[in-house]
Structures are given as structure tokens and as C-alpha cells.
Design a protein around this nucleic acid. Structure first.
Length: 264
DNA sequence: AAGCCGCGCAACCGCGCTCGT
DNA sequence: AACGAGCGCGGTTGCGCGGCT
């Protein structure tokens, strides 16, 4: 056990190899799946001569070895789709991944966390700052009702202005609206009249966060009622993307929808 | 040059669902 | 109907690397 990392120790204790895959392991898994197909992952591990759990094999195949996987950065078009679908479904990464050919749920999940969570953080910071200032003001009021509050007021005004400016770039999204378009449509509701999703700046995305409505949007993608709604909405997203960029994501949105995003 | 820090991403873990027996 | 194995999903962890001090 000397010189082993913590995961190596744990893996040794449980009998399975863990941690990063070697090229040799990749080769074994690749050859086996190409010959016998996907599924039966626990037997894949044994039959292919891999000392890996079935889970580990499946994950490696799905996220890394599977043919047709897109390598490289998420494009602005894909980012737009991720944002839209996340607003619609919340953290349903595998569902979202179905509409992004060649991308995995893991990849999308990581992308969201690294690119959008930090913006959420910065908006939380701003909230904290305002709360702190309010607290300060209240303390000052308590300590001396006679003294002037001009400086604090000024600070608060600046913060309010910052917030107001932020709201100008906020996408309206409210669950009490009556249709999907009313619920969430950046095209309809975007305040600064810039109606093309792909032209949004990264800062404009920042308030579309799960902290506000994400939890309310865990629609079941297998509910036929939602299928109807989703198909319409996704149709719109694709149209928007195409209009914005001239990039053709798919000629027929129904086909796009029905094939799980795989359009050839 | 060296240490520290934050980010990106691959991989693991726990839980819940499905399906076969 | 009950149970267990297999699988999929979402959340979390930890490593490697590049940038900063």
C-alpha cells in the first residue's frame, strides 16, 4: 500500500481497478464493445479482461470511447441550446445531452458548472454586499439617529443602480405564466430588445440560474404532454439558432426531436 | 524559481428505476 | 408480489495543468 493514492487504496480494498484509464484498457474495452455491442457491462468487464467494474466500463465507453463523440469546445450554438434546455428541464443533463449530438451528459454538466455556477456566485456576492450595506445602515441608525446617512445612502444608491443595470439584462422567466412561451421565452421577453439568443453576451445569461426557478422546471420528459410542449419549444430554439448564425442545425425540428438530436 | 490557487474535466459514488426471475 | 442484478442519472471528488504572486 506504500506510495498509493487514496483512491488506489480504496480500489485495492474492493478488488476493482479505479482511477484514470490506460490506453491498453481503452483498447480492450473498445475491441470488446465493437465485437459484442453495448450492454451487459458487468460481463464486459470480465470478458474483456478488464479489472474494472461494469459501471466504470460503461462510463468510459459512454463518455470517452463511443464513436461519434464531439471533441473540443462547446460552440456558442450549443451553449445557447444548453441554456434554453436547462431553463426548461433543470439539471436533466442526460435529457439535454440528447439534443446535442456528440456531447455527453457529463460534458454538459461540467460545462454548466464551470461556466454558469461562477456567475451565480458573483451575483450572490452582490446580494451579500447589499445585505451588508443594509445592515451597516441599520446599525448606524440605531447608534445615532441624529447623524447624517448621506454616505451610506450614496453607497446604497450605487448598489441599487448596479442591480437595476443587471435587471436590464435579465431574461424574464416566471412559472405563473400560462404558456410555454409565456413561461420562458428569451425572444419574447428579453428586455433590451436584442431578440437573438446567440447574440446574448455571457453576462446576460447570468440570471437564468437554477437558484431561482430551476427546481420548478423538472418536467418529466416522458410525459406526453411535455413532449408536445417541448417539441414546439425546441423547434423555436433551433429556428432562433439558425436565424442568429446562419448555421443549420437541422432542417426538420420534428426529426431533430424524434431522433434525439441526431441529424445527418 | 517555487509555491499557491483556481479551473476544467475525467472518474467515482450513491440512489433510484427497470426488468427478469 | 418480492427480490436482486443491472443500468442510468445527478452530484461530488480529486487530479493535472496553467496562471498568478
Amino acid at each position: 500500500m506504500m506510495g498509493m493514492t487514496s483512491w488506489e487504496v480504496r480500489a485495492a480494498e474492493q478488488g476493482w481497478r479505479k482511477g484514470p484509464w490506460t490506453p491498453e484498457e481503452d483498447k480492450l474495452l473498445n475491441e470488446y464493445v465493437n465485437l459484442h455491442g453495448e450492454g451487459r457491462w458487468s460481463s464486459v468487464a470480465k470478458s474483456a479482461g478488464l479489472n474494472r467494474s461494469g459501471k466504470s466500463c460503461r462510463l468510459r465507453w459512454v463518455n470517452y470511447l463511443r464513436p461519434g463523440l464531439k471533441k473540443g469546445q462547446i460552440t456558442p450554438q450549443e451553449e445557447g441550446i444548453i441554456i434554453e434546455l436547462h431553463a426548461l428541464w433543470g439539471n436533466k443533463w442526460s435529457t439535454i445531452a440528447r439534443y446535442l449530438p456528440g456531447r455527453t451528459d457529463n460534458e454538459i454538466k461540467n460545462y454548466w458548472r464551470t461556466h454558469f455556477k461562477k456567475r451565480e456566485k458573483s451575483s450572490h456576492k452582490q446580494e451579500k454586499r447589499k445585505a451588508q450595506l443594509l445592515k451597516q445602515k441599520q446599525q448606524q441608525e440605531n447608534m445615532s439617529r441624529v447623524s447624517s446617512h448621506a454616505d451610506t445612502d450614496k453607497l446604497l444608491k450605487v448598489t441599487d443602480q448596479e442591480n437595476h443595470e443587471n435587471q436590464q439584462n435579465t431574461v424574464t422567466m416566471h412559472p405563473s405564466a400560462s404558456t410555454v412561451e409565456d413561461h420562458y421565452s428569451p425572444v419574447m421577453h428579453h428586455h433590451d430588445n436584442n431578440t437573438i439568443a446567440s447574440n446574448w453576451s455571457s453576462d446576460q445569461y447570468c440570471v437564468v440560474d437554477e437558484g431561482l426557478w430551476g427546481g420548478l422546471w423538472n418536467l418529466d420528459d416522458h410525459d406526453p404532454r411535455n413532449d408536445h410542449v417541448d417539441a414546439n419549444h425546441i423547434n423555436k430554439i433551433i429556428t432562433m439558432q439558425n436565424q442568429a448564425t446562419g448555421f443549420t442545425f437541422g432542417g426538420d425540428s420534428n426529426n431533430f426531436y424524434n431522433t434525439g438530436g441526431y441529424i445527418f
